[in-house]
């Protein structure tokens, strides 16, 4: 799969399953790397909090996508 579509009106495209699928995959990759980093960064490392925040945001995004998908 090439680059995700850069359409300026993403809400209008959310019904498109192909678009949604790609978006989900991209966010899953972000979460995957966050998971790996969290396993490797020591508990007392200050960078850890940043990764936790990234993980949280990406997880929220994927949850929103899921809700959106169910309502379509």
């Amino acid at each position: 799969m090439s680059e995700p579509p850069r359409d300026p009106a993403p809400c209008g495209r959310l019904g498109d399953t192909e678009f949604e699928h790609t978006l989900r995959n991209q966010i899953a990759i972000v979460i995957g790397y966050c998971d790996l980093l969290l396993q490797e960064i020591r508990q007392d490392d200050p960078l850890r909090r940043d990764v936790v925040e990234m993980h949280k945001a990406a997880s929220t995004a994927i949850a929103m996508l899921r809700d959106q998908g169910e309502s379509v």
Binding site: M1, N25, Q26, A28, G32, Y33, L36
Partner: peptide, 13 residues
């Protein structure tokens, strides 16, 4: 997987 990012992630793991 058709998603290269996912493949890289799996390799990394």
């Amino acid at each position: 997987d058709d998603e290269p990012g996912m493949l890289a992630l799996i390799q990394r793991f």
